[in-house]
Amino acid sequence: MRNNNPYLPYPVRIKRVEIATEDRSLRTFELEFLHQEDADAFRYLPGQFAELSVPGYGEAPIGIASSPTEGDTLLFTVSKAGLLTSHLHSMSEGDVMGVRGPLGKSYPLQEMEGKNVLILAGGYAVTTLRSTMVWLLHPDNRPKYGDITFVYGARTPGMILYKELLEEWETNSDANIHLTIDNEAPGWDKHVGFVPQIAEKIEPSPQNAMALVCGPPVMIKFTQPVLDKQGWQSDQIIMSLENRMKCGIGICGRCNVGPHYVCKDGPVFSKAELDELPKEY
């Protein structure tokens, strides 16, 4: 990191802002580094996150939605929720802010090699799984993995993120893409129902496979029994946690789950690991 100070954000410029959902609660920001050497230093993998730093407002930990295979700019999809993210939603292309990272551990991409991959995503938790999919489908990486099944649920068609990319995957990739919305909607001809129901319907085999599950707590809660019934073991299920964070490097003391810091030792944990820890997330 710059000057070896892990708290000092890299200056970045907002290259592009896009209103990502029909309810305007999510915006996708494409950020470009002001200095090429910072872009070179920011080496990340899918599943990692960064602190988005808006001087005067603070920082917020947000999952990186882009894949390192996409070039030097970074993509973040941010929900308008608190002080900082509300201000971020008012910022425009060309504005300067900061990015600090990459932080945390990535998804276990090496451990997943040679295996089938099941991805279950709900709502805007899909961000780091977008990163993962882009990375997995890249020609350099695709041959190392078996079948890829991607299930993604949103409340309505208008709440689905990254639509163009999903269409691209549906038509041009060999991944099994399953999109679902909560209730029937005019013009929608794909799945209808919650992610756990779709997981039940498509019956993904746990044989030589790993599952990445990321979504709101209610999705996790109802997905788990489905995976259990299908014979998935807890060390095959990978999850990503969120907790309130400040430092992002395992020092400031608030995001711990038992002895582990979500920011540094996570955010990615296997369900087997989480089963041994307090549910403080």
Partner: peptide, 9 residues
């Protein structure tokens, strides 16, 4: 040793 980080302007 826990701490918070805040911006002041």
């Amino acid at each position: 040793h826990c701490f918070d980080i805040q911006d002041e302007t």
